[in-house]
Amino acid sequence: MKKLSLILSIMITLLSIILSGCTIGNQQNLEVSKISVAEQFGLAYAPLQVMKELKLLEKNLPGVEVTWKQLGNTAAIREAMVAKEVDIGFMAIPPFLIGWDKGMDWRIFSGLSKSPVGLVVNNPHIKSIKDFTGKDRIAVPQPGSVQHILLSMACEREFGEPERLDNQLITLAHPDGMNALFSKNDITAHFTAPPYLTKELEVEGMHQILSGSEAMGKDFTFIVGVSTSNFHDKNTKAYKAFIKSLNEAMAYMKQNREATQILLSKAYEMSEEEIEKYMTLEGVSYDNSVAGVPEFAEFMKRNGYISKTPQSINEILWEDVNDEK
């Protein structure tokens, strides 16, 4: 009996420590001048590099303490936002929708970039996704990624069954996927985005059989910016300042092409030529409009990736989003 009460008292103590410790964590988030932003690596995130280099946020919100985090995948960004370690995150639309569906309190506040994505194959005999045999393996960055959803969309169109190729997908990070595609051992196809897409298409024998807009039937925003409700509601000043800075960065990129290229070539450790080639690539654009959310949501609901679609677009977009119809 003595033992039991000892155990119980230890547990109660632990419980109170855990519960109290977390309220402290929450309070820290209330500080106005702190922003934590999470992004991933890649040229699709270029406006954020411009924003960083030109210190636009610091200009618009003097005294701000901004933390930039570069995380390896969308799941990590999402988890960091659940854990209230990150206020603003950048990702593709499907992972955002999955989080929203699971009850994450967040909405899109801006588009960031449009980018071509494409399915590259290393076998000249494959001309369309109809030519894949059961032996062909297709690499995508993650299940539930925009590439995976786009391939499912194409399968729905071609075969009437979106999950047709699901058993042939393997998950590889972009660079691994590219190497695997070149080695021709493991995989026949790789669904990827620039710069890997352009690098792959430069190699002889590789060709693209499907683009993102073909799969979806229209253009869509590749990367969007997402903010937690907590940050949007409680740090309105910082939230507004961030949007303002982001828009300024995009405007700067349009007006100062060369300066942007120099800046980006430093940030990405790539040559200016490479940067230029990418920036002028067909389908690449940086603007704050958001396109494709309803299409993704509808498709993903229909195929069980999410359990519901938003009643109105305002459920998932903040008030000041440039919603491109």
């Binding site: 699901d166 058993n167 997908l169 393997i170 998950t171």
Partner: peptide, 12 residues
Amino acid sequence: ISAEMIFGAVGG
């Protein structure tokens, strides 16, 4: 378990 977390099929 760790290796499976790194590579695997999506639907398979």
